[in-house]
Nucleic acid binder design. Structure first.
Lengths: 369, 369
DNA sequence: TTGAAAGCGCTAACAA
DNA sequence: TTGTTAGCGCTTTCAA
């Protein structure tokens, strides 16, 4: 293991060599050029424009590169080309409790992978302490501003659009390259590129699934009005129900995104409307519904159908398994990177966003009756 | 919003100026120097060695910096100083199902935050496709190797030590600066710095908590022998039980880290040993125990105590709330960065790792009887 | 206390 | 097809 792909210079430097610092400096373009007997520029071309070289020269250079284990110094390349091949991603405020960040982990994974395939790395940053009073616009964009001014990243992926999205407007005003994960709900004039998941379609999918199982009194438990994201998801339920000629009156609740909120809403609806199934705006709310059913001695899946949203870890392990709308985050990541590449290549942007359809992860909470 | 902290040059360039590309180039040291009427070097000193300047010169330079919104170009600084102020972190293979990655999200958050406070950013990478056959050592270190040779990061945080940790050995052989989150279990000769959480102490804490509630027949559900991590956690249970003169024979199970594994083990133990409480090596297993209790009509917390490990999102929302050992990941992150800074400052390393004590998040599954 | 010169490693522009 | 020159923006060294 120790000798695998070891540094090219021997650990004990020959007496003629100057005393090199312990961690041997990586080889440079000049080193390769010397070994291959060509100029530095030719080595550069061998890497960036191999077509320009005569085959035999190319082969000689490539062998020298191989021999030395050469890789271009990113800082030098960055400085010269003005591209860092780094994509900036701000980590939203740490999830205090289990909330909307349920899918963040999966998304970051997917984005790292998609970026890698495009030759980019992800630079993670945070906007400073998220204490009280730190919500001013200046603080929200602080991290972006620093990275932009220090030319540390080529572009940003902006995720926390649900906050009202001052970042997107600010970045757009700065002409900074970025793609948003999330539609510019509250700014119809926005022209920046974005990728989003069609929440309404996801909820429609969930509702249809329940209809297919024979449910007709399907309730909706969502968030307080005013959240674009929440209203969008709710509309999928309304659309599907009314499309089947089913009434939605009295079958919905608007609560905080907590387990307790879901539990209380479910219990209340059970008393007033007696639904046979619930579709929820989040897994958190759905778990609350499971609680409520449990307390009444009702069995999720057998007695009452329940569907959540986000396909979080919880959905996978909570008994009897929670059916949940799953965002295609891998696909989102690929699209984000694709749009970013087009943006950085200055390709004209048609101003339309990319809307992806979620899928449904079916589990025990909607077992057939 | 649009004019907030706008680029320093007017959008319409004066006729004498060359046509600047749309996204105005950020100001450089030279720009600041000109405005302040000093040399570039003096501006550099104003930033890096302000003590060297006469107060009035310093003030003049600082005002020019402010005026221009100047921030040093990271690529240039990186090239010159050979430090990127970037910490590399490899994202382990995407969590296929809910498994050990339960805490990864929280850890990344914590590390971003700790890094920021030390003036570092996090560079996320992955080691290429994680398909079958991609587990060879060469692939495991591929991502590290590239970043190292291209001098993209100053140091690494290595997390996936449970795999047997070829990375740590490889990085050490390369003399690459890194800190491991996790002890070098299978290599007692390793001398690299590490930070870890005392799993045995965490399980001991859990066991004592149950003893304090009056439990005496406390079972252990852990992983198959051979996992250092698992054996360490198990030892906390053995130590605490025997310390109280309680017998552990027949009270433990070794299974795969799945909900089904935990469920079956719990059921089996219920039949053979009749424990009144379970301590588990993971939240996944603990959820399995909850399933088993549920199936027997037993109530977690009231009838049987259950404790998990990792304080995952699941522990927070699964009814009736799962008591769980919580790793101090924020503290881990701070220590990792502290050790890294010492390492990069070439401070002598005493060869001892940092071992942190977890806490216990108490919830309904260990309600007092 | 400030400035001038040199150079980190690379690539764009041009010349041979 | 290959080589030469210059310079990206910064800091280190040394001189004033």
């Amino acid at each position: 293991m120790a000798e695998h792909d070891a540094p090219s210079l021997p650990p004990t430097a020959p007496p003629t060599a100057p005393p090199t610092p312990p961690p041997t400096l990586p080889p440079t373009l000049a080193d390769v050029a010397e070994i291959a007997g060509v100029s530095r520029q030719t080595v550069s071309n061998a890497i960036n424009n191999p077509d320009l070289l005569r085959p035999d020269t190319l082969a000689r250079v490539q062998q020298a590169i191989e021999e030395l284990g050469y890789l271009p110094n990113r800082a030098a390349r960055h400085l010269r080309t003005r591209t860092s091949r780094l994509i900036g991603l701000r980590m939203p405020a740490a999830a205090q409790e289990y909330t909307a960040n349920a899918a963040m982990d999966r998304f970051v994974h997917a984005l790292v992978e998609a970026s890698r395939e495009a030759g980019y790395h992800l630079l993670l940053f945070s906007g400073g302490p998220d204490g009280p009073g730190a919500t001013a616009a200046a603080d929200l964009v602080a991290g972006y501003d620093d990275l932009l001014r220090s030319t540390a990243v080529d572009a940003f992926v902006v995720t926390d659009t649900y906050l009202g999205n001052p970042q997107a407007r600010w970045l757009a005003a700065r002409r900074a390259p970025f793609v948003a994960f999330g539609r510019p709900w509250d700014d119809p004039t926005a022209t920046h590129p974005w990728v989003d998941v069609d929440g309404a379609a996801g909820v429609a999918l969930a509702t249809e699934h329940l209809l297919g199982l024979g449910h007709e009194r399907i309730a909706w438990i969502g968030w307080a009005a005013g959240s674009h994201l929440g209203e969008d998801r709710r509309s999928g339920w309304v659309r599907t129900m009314t499309g089947r000629g089913l009434d939605v009156d009295g079958l919905d609740a608007r609560v905080d995104d907590t387990v307790a909120g879901g539990r209380e809403a479910a219990a209340r609806l059970l008393d007033t409307a007696g639904p046979t199934a619930y579709v929820c705006a989040s897994d958190t709310l759905a778990v609350g519904v499971l609680h409520a059913l449990d307390e009444r001695g009702l069995r999720a899946g057998r007695d009452v159908g329940v569907v959540g949203f986000d396909d979080s870890q919880v959905a996978q392990v909570v008994p009897p398994g929670l059916t949940s709308v799953r965002q295609p985050l891998e696909q989102v990541a690929v699209e984000l990177v694709r749009v970013l590449e087009a943006l950085l290549a200055r390709e004209p942007h048609d101003g339309r966003g990319v809307l992806l359809r979620p899928t449904l992860a079916v589990r025990g909470s909607t077992a057939s009756r």
